[in-house]
Amino acid sequence: MEQPDPTIHQPVRLKIMAALKALPQGEQLEFVRLKGIVGATEGNLGAHITTLEEAGYVGVEKDFVGKRPRTRVAMTPHGRRAFEDYVSYLQEIIGVAGSS
């Protein structure tokens, strides 16, 4: 990888991906909890989740708990691989910088 993945590289999306990667594979994080972790507004977080979903990096599930809407987000296998590649890219940079 010559350049970082521009979809993941954006700071809010990087935080989203890191939070989801910390979960066991296939596990979901509720939007409200993710909002607290990332520190974004609802609209901003929603827009970034949409970008990640369009890239195939996350899956979004919407349902209701009683009468209240609930949105949950999970990292897809494709997203997990993309994030691992992104981390490897950063590690390569550190390795190059550390050997100079």
Score class of each variant (00 low, 15 high):
Thr7Phe: 03
Asp63Thr: 07
Val96Pro: 02
Arg80Lys: 11
Glu2Lys: 04
Ile8Asp: 10
Arg33Ile: 12
Gly26Asn: 12
Pro77Thr: 05
Gly39Pro: 09
Arg81Met: 12
Leu34Glu: 12
Leu90Cys: 12
Asp63Leu: 03
Leu29Phe: 05
Gly26Glu: 15
Arg72Leu: 09
Ala19Cys: 09
Asn44Lys: 04
Ile8Ser: 00
Ile8Cys: 01
Gln25Leu: 10
Lys21Ser: 15
Tyr89Thr: 00
Asn44Ser: 02
Arg81Ile: 06
Glu92Arg: 07
Pro24Arg: 14
Leu34Gln: 04
Ala74Asn: 07
His48Glu: 14
Asp63Val: 01
Gly36Leu: 12
Gly36Pro: 07
Lys62Asn: 14
Gln91Ser: 12
Thr51Gln: 13
Met17Arg: 04
Leu14Arg: 06
Met75Gln: 04
Gln10Trp: 00
Leu34Trp: 14
Ile37Val: 15
Leu52Asn: 01
Arg72Ser: 13
Pro24Gln: 13
Thr7Glu: 14
Leu45Phe: 12
Thr41Lys: 13
Val32Tyr: 06
Ile94His: 08
Gly46Asn: 01
Lys62Arg: 14
Gly66Arg: 00
Gly56Cys: 02
Val96Thr: 13
Gly46Ser: 01
Asn44Met: 10
Glu2Tyr: 05
Lys62Phe: 10
Thr41Ile: 01
Gln25Ser: 13
Leu45Trp: 13
Ala74Thr: 11
Gln28Cys: 06
Gly95Lys: 11
Ser99Gln: 15
Arg80Cys: 08
Gly46Thr: 00
Glu27Tyr: 08
Thr76Phe: 02
Glu53Val: 04
Ile8Asn: 01
Phe64Ser: 08
Glu54Gly: 02
Gln3Tyr: 08
His9Ser: 15
Ala18Glu: 15
Ala74Tyr: 10
Asp85Asn: 13
Leu20Glu: 05
Ile49Phe: 13
Ile37Gln: 02
Pro6Phe: 01
Arg81Gln: 15
Ala19Gly: 10
Ile93Pro: 06
Gly43Gln: 04
Val12Ser: 05
Pro6Val: 03
Ser99Tyr: 03
Lys35Glu: 15
Ser99Asn: 06
Lys67Gln: 15
Ile8Lys: 01
Ile16Gly: 02
Arg68Ala: 11
Leu45Tyr: 09
Gln28Gly: 03
Ile94Leu: 14
Gly66Gln: 05
Ala55Asp: 12
Ala82Trp: 01
Tyr57Pro: 06
Glu42Val: 08
Lys62Ala: 10
Gln25Arg: 09
Val96Ser: 07
Gly66Pro: 08
Glu54Ala: 04
Phe64Trp: 12
Leu14Thr: 07
Ala22Ile: 07
Lys62Leu: 10
Glu30Tyr: 05
His48Thr: 05
Val96Gly: 03
Glu2Val: 03
Thr7Leu: 11
Phe31His: 10
Leu29Asn: 13
Glu2Trp: 05
Met1Arg: 10
Thr51His: 08
Ser100Asp: 15
Ala19Phe: 07
Leu90Thr: 03
Met17Thr: 07
Glu27Asp: 12
Ala55Gly: 06
Gly26Ala: 05
Leu20Ser: 08
Glu53Ser: 09
Glu2Ser: 08
Ile49Gly: 03
Arg68Ser: 14
Leu20Trp: 09
Val65Phe: 15
Gln10Ser: 04
Tyr86Lys: 08
Val38Asp: 00
Thr76Asp: 12
Asp5Lys: 00
Val96Trp: 14
